[in-house]
C-alpha cells in the first residue's frame, strides 16, 4: 500500500507557478531523493508535504491523513495539523529553538502536540539523542553545538513526534564540508532501518547510495524518475543528462 500519494499538486506564488502538477507515490520503508537545479521547486514540494506552504491545488495523502486543496477554499486547521503530524521536517538551517537545550528541543513536540507526559517524553528524547550520537550533549544549548551537531539534534527533533515520514530539506547545505559526513551517516542509518524518507539534496554520491528512487525536478515538473542506477547511469531525458553533467562536471 502506498504511504504517500500526491496528485496534481500545484503551487503558485502570485503570478509565478513553482509547482505545475506533481504526482508522487511512495511505499512504506522506501527512500525517495529529489534532485534538481536551484529554484526548480524541490524545496517547495517538500514544504507543501509538511503544509508549511499551502498548495494551490491537488491532493496530498500521507498515512491516513489527507487534504484536497483547491485555490481559494479555506483548509480546516484541524486537517492541516493532522497532515503535518504525519511527517517530521529537517530544515536546511536547522531552526533549533535557541532558548531550549538539545533535550528540550526534542521534548517540545512530544509535550505540546502529542501531549505525552514529561517523563515519557524525556526518556524518548534521550533515546533519540543517543541514536544521533548526542546523549552527552543533552543539556547544551544550540549555540554551544557545532553545525553538524545542531543538525543531528534537528533530526532527533523531527523524529520525536513519531512521524510516518521524514522530510529532509537540503540537510547538509549549510554545513562546513568536514561536518557533512556525520549528518549523512545518521541519515544513512535511518534509511537502513527502513524509515520512509524524502530527501532533497545536492550530494549526488549520497543520493545514489541511499535512494530507492530518484526524481529530477526542473521548472516545477518531474522531468525523470527512476532507480538511481538508471537515472545516473543511463538517463532517458536530455535535461537529466544536462543537469548531471553540470553538477558532476566540477
Amino acid at each position: 500500500m502506498a504511504m504517500i500519494e500526491v496528485r496534481g499538486l500545484t503551487k503558485t506564488f502570485g503570478e509565478v507557478a513553482v509547482l505545475k502538477g506533481i504526482d508522487l507515490t511512495l511505499e512504506r520503508g522506501s527512500v525517495l531523493v529529489i534532485i534538481g537545479p536551484s529554484g526548480s521547486g524541490k524545496s517547495t514540494l517538500l514544504r507543501c508535504l509538511n503544509v508549511l506552504e499551502t498548495p494551490s491545488s491537488g491532493t496530498i495523502a500521507i498515512g491516513n491523513a489527507g487534504i484536497a486543496f483547491a485555490g481559494g477554499t479555506r483548509v480546516r486547521q484541524a486537517d492541516v495539523l493532522q497532515l503535518r503530524r504525519q511527517s517530521g521536517m529537517v530544515f536546511q538551517a536547522y531552526h533549533l529553538f535557541p532558548h531550549m537545550t538539545a533535550l528540550q528541543n526534542v521534548m517540545e513536540g512530544q509535550i505540546t502536540s502529542l501531549r505525552r507526559p514529561k517523563e515519557e517524553a524525556r526518556e524518548r528524547a534521550m533515546r533519540l539523542l543517543a541514536k544521533v550520537g548526542l546523549e552527552t550533549r543533552a543539556d547544551s544549548y544550540p549555540h554551544q553545538l557545532s553545525g553538524g551537531q545542531q543538525q543531528r539534534v534537528g533530526i532527533a527533533r523531527a523524529m520525536s513526534i513519531d512521524p510516518q515520514l521524514l522530510l529532509f530539506d537540503e540537510p547538509t547545505s549549510a554545513l562546513d564540508p568536514e561536518l557533512v559526513r556525520e549528518v549523512l551517516k545518521v541519515i544513512r542509518e535511518l534509511a537502513q532501518e527502513g524509515r520512509t524518507m524524502i530527501v532533497v539534496t545536492h550530494e549526488m554520491k549520497f543520493a545514489r547510495e541511499v535512494a530507492d528512487r530518484i526524481i529530477l525536478i526542473d521548472e516545477g515538473v518531474i522531468v525523470e524518475e527512476g532507480p538511481p542506477e538508471q537515472l545516473f547511469g543511463s538517463p532517458k531525458q536530455e535535461r537529466t543528462r544536462q543537469f548531471l553533467s553540470r553538477i558532476m562536471g566540477d
Binding site: N50, V51, Q77, R84, S87, H95, F97, S113
Partner: peptide
C-alpha cells in the same frame, strides 16, 4: 524558521 519549526512539530499557532 522558528514558526515553521514549531508548526512542523504539529504545534498550533497559539502554542
Amino acid at each position: 524558521g522558528q514558526w515553521e519549526a514549531a508548526y512542523s512539530l504539529g504545534q498550533t499557532r497559539l502554542q
